[in-house]
Design a protein around this nucleic acid. Sequence first.
DNA 1: CTTCATACGTAGCAACGCTACTTGTCGTTC
DNA 2: GAACGACAAGTAGCGTTGCTACGTATGAAG
Lengths: 114, 114
Amino acid sequence: MKAQALHGHLDALLLAVLEQGPLHGYAIIEALRSRSDGHLDLPTGTIYPALRRLERAGHVASTWSTVNGRERRTYQLTDAGRGALAGERSGWREFSSTVGRFLDADTPPTTTPA
Amino acid sequence: MKAQALHGHLDALLLAVLEQGPLHGYAIIEALRSRSDGHLDLPTGTIYPALRRLERAGHVASTWSTVNGRERRTYQLTDAGRGALAGERSGWREFSSTVGRFLDADTPPTTTPA
DNA sequence: CTTCATACGTAGCAACGCTACTTGTCGTTC
DNA sequence: GAACGACAAGTAGCGTTGCTACGTATGAAG
């Protein structure tokens, strides 16, 4: 998967994984990886700043905890975040249907008929 | 449609509209607008540099002509461009199905029952 | 003669995600 | 007990990309 393709859709993905329950950053990375069959293997340098962006925006809230001597920052969706997710979803639908109109259309006949 | 959403997919769109035949820049803008029901209304400052990028990459070729005293630069897909388009299409499919797995899933019950 | 549609273009900016690196604990292996 | 990998968090700086705001010029319409 091309790296820059995510541009503008990462927030939506993060909100979507958090919709199913609170997770800490590292677990979010793993959730994205497993739920996408390995297609989304995002580096920490992508995830952590994005989560802080979302927190600044009020879409998620975080709480620290210590598990086995390891510091964890667990994020959970806020009500505002749930609203934002709904918006992102409809935005995604519009975007993907618009672009899909140009790109999904016809796979050029790879099966070039004789 | 959010502005930055296109990030990384613009080239694919341009190749896709040119797949149906050569067009000049201004006509490409109109084609994108009409074929997307107005959702894609891209400014010249987006299109022209993108077309030059594609030309530098060898995906399109341009020829100048004068129509009614107006200079036109008509772009057409090259063979390499056709190949690139095929790649972009499969990239798009992978991308949209991956993201869609998170976002298309379930429209949260907008029909919040009273 | 002014305005709008046509037609091309550039300069500079802002956003976003990535690469590369750092810090620290725990568990396992040598 | 040293070393290494998995776990867990983070920052600094960079490159790409599309957008905003301009600038130029012709032809048609009023």
